[in-house]
Design a binder for these strands. Structure first.
Lengths: 134, 134
DNA sequence: TTAGGTGCAAACAATTTGCCGTGTT
DNA sequence: AACACGGCAAATTGTTTGCACCTAA
């Protein structure tokens, strides 16, 4: 694996994400570019978005699978990149102030979720190091 | 639409979510119950999970669609329940302390995401009220 | 020249829905 | 009896992948 090459498609995809104010989905990027790039394929959009996310040029939000939680009180979650699981972390001490703070921008907050990404206690204890792919 | 009825399946699904420590997906709930309820269908699991989430008996995490963001610096997002969009809210002031605080439980935090759910400024301004379905 | 990139279509995976028979009330 | 619910299978939707051709380096 030596450095990647220039790609017109990739640059356009990147520009489309930057230009959009709405945190576009892959489909949104595709629809936006299609008029000017009729032969663009959705697979290319996905491939490039993920590639750029891996480089840190973009950020990828949310997981592909919906999970359910019987704890309806506010608390935080840790998504473990080793085992893929999701576990609780208890409430953060400043949880309560977050909503009001956010509402200063004119929106109405109904609830919030704080999701950490990292290595859960179980996986961390299992063995110390190893390549930590973000 | 008048009140819902008792359903053995729904109760078992609820109990399965409560009993699990891993924030199960619909599929996980299904697999867990299948041995004792061989005729249970995945569709029923989805239907009941969503129904209970609407009542507030369960909480549904994460969306079904991955979104991308060109802003790689830490900031928070608001998911609007009216328009379905996602917009930025800027960084919360205590952002920086969150990771270390969370690590007290023995895990290793690589990054975090704070996602608010509510009504975005644009939709809130559009008109005051209306039924706010959570 | 050559490895990375593309378009296309097929494969997968996650979730939703229509239909119709059952069970709760 | 009325209508919510469940099972089943088909349909949607979101995402990934294999392959043959193309192109930047």
């Amino acid at each position: 694996m030596q450095g990647q090459r220039f790609s017109y498609q990739r640059e356009q995809i990147y520009r489309a994400v930057c230009a959009s104010q709405e945190h576009p989905t892959a489909e949104m990027v595709y629809q936006r570019l299609k008029p000017s790039m009729p032969r663009l394929s959705l697979g290319t959009v996905y491939r490039n978005l993920h590639q750029m996310a891996q480089e840190g040029r973009l950020v990828e939000m949310e997981g592909p699978v919906v999970r359910f939680d019987a704890v309806t009180k506010p608390h935080t979650h840790l998504r473990c990149i080793r085992c893929g699981g999701v576990c609780d972390l208890g409430a953060m001490p400043y949880d309560d102030g977050l909503d009001r703070k956010a509402e200063e921008s004119g929106c109405r907050i109904l609830r919030h979720t704080l999701v950490f990404t990292g290595i859960c206690a179980a996986c961390a204890a299992e063995q110390g190091e190893g390549p930590v792919a973000i």
